[in-house]
Amino acid sequence: MTNRTFVLTCLTPLLIFSLAFLAFPLMRLFLASVEGDNGWAVYLDIIRKPRYINTLVLTVLVSLATTFAALAVSTTAGMFLVRNKFRGRNILLSILTLPLAFPGVVIGFLIILLGGRQGLINQITPGHVVFAYSVLGLFLGYLYFSIPRVLLTVMAAAEKLDPALEEAARTLGANPFRVVVDVILPGLMPSLIASGAIAFATAMGAFGTAFTLATNIDVIPMVIYTEFTLSANIAMAAALSIVLGIVTWILLLIARSLSGTTVAAGG
């Protein structure tokens, strides 16, 4: 088999997949969004009506906050877990990655058990502390299912860091903090970008957790659901889906090009 036919062979499944699962449904979705009574104006509505635009901004902000918090927590925890071998390490690791198996609803339920009206925090603190149904509750829920994804990716990358690089930096006078900034973070950067992208995209589209927690607040996946099922406003549901997809895609593109420049700056 020549190199060319080999590439073509590999290309076929990709082509079938892209057409069947991405291009056709997305095209259909897009057509559905402009076939409503308002036609193209449905997209103008999203920008003009506070209910939609505010929800979109909130969704992006919560997802960004989740992403950065998950990166910060997972990087420190992951580095520690990779560098320190101790008893019970593997058990701790499996507990940390457990949320991967939970559906969003279960995670929302856990947050309610923690921060709801009958929740743990409300019971042990004197005041009335209920955060499960606020943005904070949503953020914590998203964080909970983002951490394992990021942690596993970061740990895999941290295992591969060359300890000699850190030692070289230290012999050159770098204190432990500089070693983190100049050696460890650049070494982890590709995996931070990749896992951050996954965490962000997952948070943008999370439904189960939002469904359980977002009674007072709205996020885009919830709005899509209500437009679709309650208002039967299929055009708006479709338009919001398209916008959700495009916004996520643009932000991921920015992250990817930023990572490109960090690598290029090194090169």
Binding site: A168, T171, G173, V183, P186, A265, G266
Partner: peptide, 21 residues
């Protein structure tokens, strides 16, 4: 500590910083 000993070290694998020129 290492960073205050002012020693220069050449490593077997060179350990050059790949993200720097």
């Amino acid at each position: 500590p290492v960073e205050r000993r002012q020693v220069g070290m050449v490593f077997q694998s060179y350990a050059l910083f790949p993200n720097m020129s």
